[in-house]
């Protein structure tokens, strides 16, 4: 009997869906072994179809995108119940991804920007979405919780396929491993075990005595990137050393530094912190003012550089959310005190 498989997308760009299609002929081969029972972006199944399956009937659900809205949470919980294996597919599902950077703004800011302050927004009145939605059409809008979450913050996740989007070779290897008789232990990230440097063709251009960096540059600032020298040594903030391998250095071969979409290696608690830590250590200066200048000139967006894909799962995010909670509690208390004072008057 063919194994049942589901695909679902949450907050994502659609690139991960493309990654499945990119499997090309392999997908046709795979269909000998698997049967797709749910794939909103490509096939006409409804939620009801999934609901009708018995629990655990689906062999594996591949879920991409970060969990941002209430409907996404509902569906992934349903898929969790119906599936033996849940695979977080792609950077957003794995670590929060680019949509995860929304967590640096609170819920109100996001709404204000999208509905009032954004440069492309026409201001007509004070229209705001509410969970009960636009009643005229008898549909309910899903609720935005105020933060994006990687899949494992919502449901239990068995495997991860990293990448933004995961390249075909990685997806293919992962599928083969999952379908094999001896699948890898749960929790495994289905890609390389070492950092990108281990498979990077430029790794051997590093001198044996190591190297340090005097200046960082952004790819847009340089007219010429030497294709035969380690990009990091040229001052491009390549996150290869801290990023899991598996992509065969796709970006590097395209003369662009690694931005870390495959996430950290096992044992690293916080990708951005590890990235920051290694890159900062390489700065070739002991003078604080000079170091500040090197950072200001070459790394103008540290959050976007170090946490491009991993913010929602980071310690930094935890700190931020806790701080926000405290601030909210503080504000509410102030307001109550104020209300009481007014009342007393």
């Amino acid at each position: 009997m063919k194994k049942k498989v589901a695909f679902y997308w949450c907050a994502s760009c659609g690139g991960c869906e493309e990654a499945v299609v990119d499997l090309a002929e392999f997908l046709l081969d795979a269909l000998e072994q698997i049967e797709i029972v749910f794939w909103p972006v490509a096939m006409d199944f409804k939620i009801e179809d999934v609901e009708q399956l018995t629990d655990g009937e689906i062999f594996a659900s591949f879920i991409n995108g970060a969990v941002l809205l209430s409907d996404q949470e509902e569906v992934v919980r349903l898929l969790r119940r119906k599936s033996q294996v849940v695979v977080a597919f792609g950077s957003c599902s794995h670590q929060g991804g680019v949509p995860g950077l929304i967590n640096t703004h609170d819920r109100q800011d996001v709404f204000d920007y999208y509905y009032h302050n954004g440069p492309t927004v026409q201001r007509n009145g004070n229209e705001m979405p509410t969970p009960t939605g636009a009643k005229a059409f008898h549909v309910a809008l899903p609720e935005y919780y105020g933060k994006a979450r990687p899949l494992n913050q919502v449901i239990e996740v068995d495997y991860y396929i990293p990448g933004c989007a995961p390249p075909p070779n990685v997806v293919k290897d992962a599928l083969l491993q999952l379908l094999s008789d001896s699948p890898p232990p749960r929790g495994t990230v289905l890609a390389g075990a070492h950092s990108l440097c281990s498979e990077c063709p430029l790794n051997e251009t590093k001198p044996p005595e190591g190297f340090k960096i005097k200046q960082f540059v952004r790819p847009s600032q340089v007219t010429h990137i030497d294709p035969d020298t380690c990009l990091l040594m040229q001052g491009l903030p390549c996150l290869g050393p801290v990023t899991r391998s598996g992509c065969n250095a796709l970006c590097i071969k395209g003369h662009m530094p690694c931005t870390g979409c495959f996430g950290p290696l096992d044992g690293v608690r916080d990708f951005g912190a590890a990235a920051l830590s290694f890159l900062a250590s390489l700065i070739d200066s002991n003078d604080e003012a000079e170091i500040q200048r090197i950072i200001d000139e070459g790394l103008p967006d540290p959050l976007g550089t170090f946490y491009m894909y991993s913010f929602p799962g980071s310690l930094l995010n935890e700190v931020l959310q806790k701080g926000r909670q405290k601030a909210r509690a503080w504000r509410e208390r102030e307001e109550t005190v104020e209300a009481q004072t007014t009342e007393n008057q």
């Binding site: 790794n203 005595e209 190591g210």
Partner: peptide
């Protein structure tokens, strides 16, 4: 087993205690 051979640590060691095994 875990080392990726990325060379990052080598130049940082203040005691030149790290070498690279090609």
């Amino acid at each position: 087993q875990k080392c990726s051979g990325c060379h990052v640590c080598i130049a940082l060691c203040p005691y030149s205690a790290i070498a690279f095994n090609e």
